[in-house]
């Protein structure tokens, strides 16, 4: 069976039709994972019992496959009366899963900030919350733009997992075409190329952001 370019092109509109769903899931999950991950890191830094629990949670998240999380949220939670839609489950699952990784990235970004920054903020009388928002977080983002972008690309590439929940995203569409036509190479190649293009776009955007965040560093 040869690769049929004309057939491949004919699958583009169908697969591309799901790009909105893929982008929606990816974007919301990136925001969710960043927010949860930052929260986890703040709690971990505050120490105490909460900190210990979060430490365990982050290790636990990172040591389990994302598919297990999606299955648990979708098929097991309903036994306990919590019934989420497929899309919500997918977004929550990806957000929670990647929050563990992003918490580690945030940790590295915060560790790289000199102690003097926190001391100066405290000496000026800033409280913990103001210090975190106005002094620590912006400098952390500067330090981690690149690794954070990598995880955003990972989240994008993890959206096809939602196919197991029947969320109509791009790879799911490609498989639908494949099972109807018994031709796998063309739709999967098309889906792969679209993912490649999106990932490149994200990388480019992150590079731009990095330059802007660095601001003027020399005289």
């Amino acid at each position: 069976m040869q690769f049929d370019v004309a057939f491949a092109l004919s699958t583009v509109p169908t697969i591309l039709g799901a790009i909105g769903m893929t982008l929606l899931v990816a974007a919301v999950s990136c925001v969710g994972a960043s927010a949860v991950g930052f929260g986890l890191e703040v709690v971990r830094r505050s120490g105490g019992l909460g900190g210990l629990f979060v430490r365990f949670l982050i290790d636990f998240i990172r040591a389990t496959p994302v598919l297990v999380w999606l299955y648990c949220l979708y098929f097991i939670l309903p036994f306990y009366g919590i019934r989420l839609g497929a899309l919500a489950t997918g977004i929550i699952g990806l957000s929670l899963y990647y929050s563990g990784y992003l918490a580690e990235v945030f940790k590295a970004g915060i560790d790289a900030i000199p102690n003097g920054q926190g001391e100066a903020a405290r000496a000026l009388g800033l409280g913990r919350i103001d210090m975190t928002i106005f002094v620590i977080a912006p400098q952390m983002l500067r330090n981690i733009a690149a690794p954070m972008g990598n995880y955003f690309v990972s989240i994008l590439k993890a959206t096809p997992y939602l196919a197991v929940l029947a969320v109509p995203e791009m790879l799911g569409r490609a498989f639908d075409i494949a099972s109807e036509t018994y031709r796998y190479a063309e739709p999967l190649t098309v889906a792969g190329l679209i993912f490649l293009g999106l990932a490149l776009l994200i990388s480019l955007a992150i590079k731009r952001l990095e330059v802007r965040l660095m601001g003027p560093t020399t005289r």
Binding site: P114, G116, Q117, E119, A120, A121, A123, V135, P138, Q139, R142, L213, G215
Partner: peptide, 14 residues
């Protein structure tokens, strides 16, 4: 009520 000036300035670079 106290202002502090550090050896390494500790200005906020961003």
């Amino acid at each position: 009520q106290t202002g502090m000036v550090f050896q390494s300035f500790n200005l906020f670079p961003h």
